[in-house]
Design a binder for these strands. Structure first.
Lengths: 150, 150
DNA sequence: CTACAACATTTGTATGTACAAATATAAGGG
DNA sequence: CCCTTATATTTGTACATACAAATGTTGTAG
C-alpha cells in the first residue's frame, strides 16, 4: 500500500518526506513481524540481536562496548539487557582478568541451542519479507540505503 | 557505509537479512536526526507527528482513533501522548457532543505557530537525507518499500 | 424499557529506556 | 609513587511504553 494512503494523508507530500516516512513505517512493520516470531521464545528483538552478536564471536568473549557498537538499535543501557540474558541463562558474564574495568560476555550452551531453534523462524520472516521484490531490487535497495546514511 | 561494515559482521549474511537490518538501521538513523532537530522545541518525534496530523485536519477535530491510525509509529497509549500536548497548550480536547464516548482533539493557535517554526527545520533534515540519492532512485525506493509491506 | 454486547477512551501497573551521575579501574605525567 | 585524566561499566531516577482491565457510553434485540 502506498505510504500516503497508509497514513491517510490528503495533502500531497514532497518525495523526500514520503521517503523518510516510508523507511520508518517499513522498519516498524518488519520489527513487529520479528517480535511476533520471537514471542514463543520469550525474548525481545534487542535480546535476540545481542545473542546473535555473541554467537558471531565464535567462542571469543565480547565486552559491553563491543556489543553496543554492533547492535542494530543502539541503546543506552546494555548492562541491564545483558542482565536479562544472564537471568535466563543464555549468556554468562565474568570480569575480564587483564582489564578489570571490562567484562567478558559469552553465550552459553543454552543460548546457542535457543538460537538454533529460532534461526529457521527468523530466516522465514526475512525471506518472506524480502522476496516481495526481485533479487536485483534488493541489491539496489541495499545500495541506496547505504548511501542515505552517508 | 555498507551495512555489514557498520555492524562489524565477519560472516556474510544473505541479502534478505542485509535488507532487513539496513531498513531498521536507516530508520533509526533518520529518526535520531529528526529527534535532534526537534530538541530545541522540546517535543518528541511522536508528539510532532500527532501535531502534524491535527494540522492536516484543517480545522476539523480528530478523535483518538483517527490519530492512532495515522501515526507513523502506532502506539498503545495515545491518550497520554495527547495529554502532553494539552499540557503544553498545543492542542485542546473536548468531549464529542454527538457521541460522548469520543473526544474531539484540535490543534491550538500555539500548536500551529510551533509547527510553523519547526517546518523549515524538518524540511531541511528530510531534504539533506533524501538528496544523497537521485530523484529517480527516491521514486523507485518508495515503490519498493511500498511493495515490501504488501 | 431493559439487558447485553460493542465501542472509544482512560487508567493501573509492570516493564523498558534514556540520561546523568557514580563507581571502579587503568594509564600517563611529573 | 601520587595525582589527574581517561575508560568501562553500573546504578539512580525520571520518563515512556505495552498490555490488560476498567469506565463510561451507545446501539440493539427481545
Amino acid at each position: 500500500m502506498k505510504i500516503e494512503e497508509l497514513l491517510k494523508t490528503k495533502d500531497k507530500m514532497p518525495e523526500s518526506r514520503k521517503l523518510v516516512l516510508n523507511i520508518i513505517v517499513t522498519a516498524n512493520y518488519i520489527t513487529d513481524k520479528i517480535a511476533e516470531a520471537l514471542k514463543p521464545f520469550a525474548i525481545s528483538n534487542q535480546q535476540f540481536n545481542v545473542l546473535r552478536i555473541l554467537r558471531g564471536q565464535k567462542g571469543k568473549p565480547a565486552n559491553l562496548s563491543t556489543i553496543q557498537e554492533r547492535m542494530v538499535s543502539k541503546m543506552s543501557n546494555t548492562t541491564r539487557l545483558v542482565d536479562k540474558l544472564v537471568d535466563k541463562n543464555y549468556c554468562e558474564r565474568i570480569v575480564c582478568p587483564s582489564n578489570r574495568r571490562k567484562v567478558e560476555i559469552r553465550i552459553t550452551k543454552d543460548g546457542l541451542e535457543l538460537l538454533q531453534k529460532i534461526d529457521p523462524v527468523i530466516d522465514k520472516v526475512e525471506n518472506d519479507f524480502a522476496n516481495k521484490i526481485s533479487e536485483k531490487e534488493i541489491l539496489s535497495l541495499n545500495t541506496n540505503l547505504n548511501e542515505l546514511r552517508s
